[in-house]
């Protein structure tokens, strides 16, 4: 895992605005964006399409409860 990702407590959220025709397209774009960042355990937390496009908050979990957290390793 990349060092910067090791320091993430639990999840990475990406917020942006997609110029797109509907919510479905915005959702697809957001999930593809997360994939580009190498995030695997992904979901759309919030999406709202209105006229100009979609405001979206997409999330990739680095850890879920019960995992082993790399940030516990400190600065090693």
């Amino acid at each position: 895992m990349e060092t910067c990702l090791k320091k993430v407590m639990d999840a990475v959220d990406i917020e942006t605005f997609f110029v797109c025709k509907d919510e479905e397209e915005g959702r697809d774009l957001a999930l593809k964006l997360l994939e580009k960042f190498g995030l695997k355990d992904t979901d759309i937390v919030f999406i709202e399409h209105s006229g100009a496009g979609a405001r979206v908050r997409a999330r990739g979990y680095l850890y879920r409860a019960g995992d082993q957290y790399a940030w516990l390793e400190g600065d090693k």
Binding site: A11, D41, D43, I44, V45, Y61, R64
Partner: peptide, 13 residues
């Protein structure tokens, strides 16, 4: 602010 989100655990931020 994750209160209404049911797709996963609450995130720290």
């Amino acid at each position: 602010s994750d209160e209404a989100y049911s797709g996963g655990p609450i995130a720290g931020p």
